[in-house]
Design a protein around this nucleic acid. Sequence first.
RNA 1: GGGUGGUUAGCUCAGAUGGUUAGAGCGCCACGUUGACAUCGUGGAGGUCAUAGGUUCGAGUCCUAUACCGCCCACCA
Length: 766
Amino acid sequence: MMDKIFKPAEVEEKIYRMWEEGGYFTPKIEEGKKPFTVLLPPPNASGKMHTGNVLMIAIEDLLIRWHRMRGEPALWLPGTDHAGTETQITFERELKKEGKSRFQFDRASLYQLIWDFVQKNKGLIEGQIKQMGASVDWSRYKFTLDPDAVAVVRSTFSKLAASNLVYRDDYIVNYCPSCGTTYADIEVEHKARRDPLYFMKYGPFTIATVRPETKFRDTALAVNPKDARYKKYIGQTLEIPGLLGSVSMTVIPDPKVDPKFGTGIMKVTPAHDPHDFELGKKFNLPVTPVIDLSGRMDLSWYLSRKDVSEKYRERAQKYHGKKVIEARRLMVEDLKGEWLLVKTDENYEHLVPVCKAGHDIEPTILPNWFIKVETLKKSAAKAVDSDKVKIYPKWRKITYTRWMEVMHDWAISRQNVWGIRIPAWYDVSKNPQIEISFLSQEKVPVSGRVGEIMKNYSFAEIESGLQTLTAPKDCCYVISDNKPGEKFLQTTETFDTWFSSGQWPLTTLGYPNSADFKYFYPTSVLETGWEILPKWVSRMIMFGLYLTGKPPFEYVYLHGIVRALDGRKMSKSLGNVIEPDDYLKEFGADALRMGLISGTANGRDFNFPRDKVIAFRNFGNKVWNIARFFLSECEKLGKDIPFYSKETTKSLTTEDRKIIKSLNLLVRKVDRSLENFKFARAGEEIYQFVWHEVADKYIENCKSRLEQSQTDEEKAVCLSLLRHTILTCLKLLHPFMPFVTEAIWQQMSRKHNEPLIISKWPEVEK
RNA sequence: GGGUGGUUAGCUCAGAUGGUUAGAGCGCCACGUUGACAUCGUGGAGGUCAUAGGUUCGAGUCCUAUACCGCCCACCA
């Protein structure tokens, strides 16, 4: 006998195991039948489920189950991402708790430690995916660092290099001295902060800056060409006296200089500011760094000069090797002493670039690996523009188009350990200028130019203790999966995570030759949060087209971001983060899924719909009790109830005919809504019908009919129709709320021939 | 600064190509519990659809402007 109340916690795990062990999530390749394929956007392997993942799983499982029930070979392929930077930051935080740092390990050992860390934590997210009821095909599970996935990524890199789409160049990158790595533009956040704005005397001018410490490497002064005050100076080269003697600078025009800001004149430091870097390229200015990779002032170029006075030398000595902030403080003091500081605005608010861990980004010149995106992005933009790839909701399309317009060459190298190491090798004997750092056999850190170091250390010792390798852009390299020769060192850089996940449709399906790839590629729907449209979706389209000529998916559905209950973005510091686990335990997976789906009708961001989760918990119970009513009536009658069929079931009442008509209509409506990616509407349609038509009216009507029935036959017909109604509703509801529907199906199915509900979508009667 | 979305019931939000008395969930009010379900039932109150114009036989829905929110992107020194 069924309980009065549906208790998700008691059945969910059992039901999932039954599905999984039955192999129902593993599709068969049926030639001639078009498959329906969805790839699970891989969550961080060492992370845990957040509400966004829940929504993602709810929508994808809905799509997959719906298509599977319609008889299509439906593949939903799961996987996890190594999440390079994020994971490494998390891991290093753990290390710090033990009083250790990554600098105490050679690269290979560190990689192994992180690998173990991830393996240890991987089970959590996998388990949570199962708890959500996700009907993913675990037999095809993929991790971004699986050997075959790595092989695909590396071969793509080789191909790009062979087609001349890879280059190395110095570039101004978002470098974080604390993390010791660069970040992509899209990974950097801008934080509002108040800093002193210094007005310094600059020859005949006064300039305003927050960063006086970079002034030693200023190479020009920029003014707006329309600014009458400075027009006459344009093109002139002036000697500007400063803290370390005078520097000659040319005045250049730049329309982006705002005459109203500060004094309308800007100092140009190509080595430490992205805009200045661009200007530098335009006007052929020398790029001269003054801050090193550890975020310290590097004035060695000045100190090595013979022509400087003792006073200046001492001063330079004072700044040299100091952290930027400290150097700034010392300089401001000296500027005051020299009467070069005109005034200070202490209330200047501006945006400061910060990295994921919250450190200040120091724009720096570094040799980097780049992908030329011009040709790649053109075809990728066209694929969406021509609707070969269709984006839903439709209004998101413009976000993609705009992004593609401004996309510039992509720096794909990261100084992380955790990731896919770039398969580029350097012959150390031919490239003595390469900078390396390593741990000697005695675990002592050594760094410097490899040419020098080789005099004191054996190659083997360097190789085994290697930590980092920074090769100037003109070094010659060999791209190879294996060590190409005796004295070769592999670069220590790894690929940007988006470089590998951008190939997810290829790596998961076994590009280029597997049967899976031939059958399931291109996939059907890519479903993900809209915020990674530029980071991820655009890259997948680019790579898919580049390697196969076909875009990797037909549809893109973008869901909104789940905000906290208070309408703000969830964040640890605000303490408003919602743990899906809490809701899962209290209300069950069905309610959580359905609540989230119906909380976001149009793909916009939305607040976590707690009320709806509760409403759908109640709904699950309602459905449960409808079935309970039916079963108890059957028991009372004590006879077999014949199955309804249009041909054989006679003596239908008006209500019966009406309900059959309504059911047919409902199926059509739900199909139509789902076809248009209107998930919330489809759910609402089922909810309203089941609760207010079936439960409130039809069942009440059945009650009186059963009471008034003269014969068992009449009762049997009534119950037969009721069962037909319930079973149809269960099928429709199953993709939304798989557990409760399956649990009921099991109770009701003793005598019908479909063992599991997931097998069949209701047909519309003609 | 560029882009993009929002402003509809007390709260959170739906309203597909403009068409009968504008919907849901939650909350609220009244009544109802010994046999499907109190995670329930019956009934009810509650909205000049941000503002101002316009197109139309007809606008929450289309157009223009304004005012507030929100988010994304961006090099303001």
